[in-house]
């Protein structure tokens, strides 16, 4: 599971749909690997528009990274040198950081989901369907 993907998913339980607590999930006991991926600045520019930055900060903190800027880097231009540096950092964080194993907990209902072999599992037990 890419770090990026943590920004798209919340708790799958129907009762948590409207709760603001169900996104982002809380990440714990995570095992991370840096997986080298080709750098694609256009991809990052497209993704950046769709990111909830507060959630990025929160998940990064769960994973032990406190160094993100408080506001979303904005109107980045892959041609500008200083923007390049930011985009490369974002690439390392969002695309290359893989969560291989770990737990994702809903802050609303406390249900725990697992990431197994890099694939997050959102299947629900019967009593939560």
């Amino acid at each position: 599971m890419k770090f990026l993907t943590t920004n798209f998913v919340k708790c799958a339980v129907k009762g948590c749909q409207s709760s603001t607590e169900s996104f982002p999930l809380k990440y714990s006991d995570c095992q991370l690997v840096q997986e080298e991926q080709e750098y694609n600045p256009e991809f990052l520019v497209h993704m950046l528009e769709r990111l909830d930055w507060n959630a990025v900060i929160q998940v990064a903190r769960d994973l032990g990274n406190d160094s993100l800027p408080p506001t979303k880097p904005d109107s980045l231009d892959p041609i500008m040198e200083e923007d390049q540096a930011v985009l490369k950092d974002l690439h390392t964080l969002l695309v290359e950081t893989q969560i291989v194993e770990g737990r994702m907990t809903c802050n609303n209902c406390q249900h725990v989901y697992h990431i197994k072999n890099s694939i997050p599992n959102f299947l629900l037990p019967p009593h939560l369907c």
Binding site: N7, V9, K10, A12, Q37, N40, L123
Partner: peptide, 23 residues
């Protein structure tokens, strides 16, 4: 096309985990 690939997730479509405002 690896640089475009987002991700795959285990999910029951009828209990979807994508946040509503993810475009």
């Amino acid at each position: 096309t690896s640089t475009q690939f987002l991700d795959v997730l285990t999910m029951d479509f009828t209990n979807n985990a994508f946040r509503k405002d993810f475009v």
